[in-house]
């Protein structure tokens, strides 16, 4: 039976709060296994400051890394696709994060997650 829904002229507002417990952390775990330098990021922003894509779009590798760590992966694949893999971020990172591979691994995990509902890589 379809539920009757009344129109009040307003509705429940989407909660902005990051609900860490409710989020899925698979992508973060898989990426960390594939590219352990993920752990080393200190959110300094050097990568996004030098990034070509960051100058003209909202793309920020610093934020992408944080979103992966917090399990906030909804809509992230589109974000990551803005990277052109030029490698400039890797040159400047003070913690030697392997940023190019990180982007590739994040994309891969997100693709798998989107296609199969799991971030696990198929053999």
């Amino acid at each position: 039976m379809e539920k009757k829904v009344k129109n009040f002229g307003y509705s429940v507002t989407r909660d902005r709060q990051i609900d860490f417990d409710a989020n899925n952390h698979d992508v973060g775990k898989i990426v960390a296994l594939a590219e352990p330098t993920l752990h080393l990021c200190i959110s300094c922003g050097t990568c996004s400051a030098t990034c070509t894509a960051s100058q003209f779009t909202e793309f920020s590798l610093r934020q992408v890394i944080l979103l992966v760590r917090r399990g906030e992966t909804k809509g992230l694949l589109k974000e990551v696709s803005k990277c052109m893999l030029c490698g400039k971020c890797q040159l400047v990172c003070p913690r030697n994060v392997s940023t190019r591979n990180l982007i590739i691994q994040i994309s891969r995990a997100l693709c798998n997650h989107e296609v199969s509902g799991s971030a696990m890589l198929k053999p």
Partner: peptide, 12 residues
């Protein structure tokens, strides 16, 4: 607040 993401965060 996860100030680097600019969003409030709740964790158990």
């Amino acid at each position: 607040e996860d100030t680097l993401l600019g969003k409030p965060l709740r964790i158990k």
